[in-house]
Amino acid sequence: MKTIAFGQYYPVQSPIHRLDARIKIILAILFIVCTFLCKNILCFAALIVAALFLIFMSRLPLGTVLRSIRPLIFIMIFTAVLNLFWTTGETPLFEWWRIRIYEEGIYSAVFMVVRIIVLVLGTGLFLTYTTTPIALTDGIESLLSPLRVIRVPVHEFAMMMTIALRFIPTLSEETGKIMNAQKARGVDFSEGGLIRRAKALVPILIPLFVSSFRRADELAMAMECRCYRGGKGRTRMTVPHLHARDFVALVVMVAFGAGILYLNRLGIGYSVP
């Protein structure tokens, strides 16, 4: 249980790893916007090139990156089929019984699939693969901090995230222990139907919950003993500073967005509405 991966973070040194977490969050959002701005074949080509460039820059092994798409295969096939059969155009390429496939349908199916792939790759490459969960939490806290003015408990939210991340390995280890303890008492987790298996989980969940509450209680006391009293008057050990590379990355992303908009206006080939 000690080998449990913390999120999907892939620890290598790369230009993307080195970027500031806040900038990466903004870049990821901009990149998502870009994927939705894409309308024609040139744009999507540019998007694919950008995604390949990101993979190259992140120094991640291609296999690891592509594996992140696997869980979405069903959604991709579903959207592709939907777009293929339901998009109407002028002249059908193929007609059989009540099924008509148009050129436009093929285009929009391909575009949708590319869009989904790039979307997942982009967020993964900017966020989960290249940013530690803790940096991500700090980044979110920092970006949301203006909301404090309207009394959103941003610090508390970030603290909860941090503690959750801290206790994932601890609780998963504990789950393993409880399961073993129940197995030793003859509980079978692998047989029976869905309902029986779900029922078998009850004797795991109850002790786990009870112990979590006890842990929470002790942790709260330990935190109080270490003078924790919320975000008020709190300083941080590492104050993130923006570097030139962060601004460069931002400028490149904005330029990419502008490029996409320009390519859209060229109006080459089929353009999705």
Partner: peptide, 30 residues
């Protein structure tokens, strides 16, 4: 105060971040 269960008193996911937790609460400069 140091408590009994070592798991239930560490707050952060990285050792040095956890050690920094107390001084951060005290408002010590970075």
């Amino acid at each position: 105060m140091v408590f009994q269960n070592p798991d239930n008193q560490l707050v952060a996911t990285i050792v040095e971040e956890d050690v920094a937790f107390g001084p951060e609460n005290l408002g010590v400069p970075s």
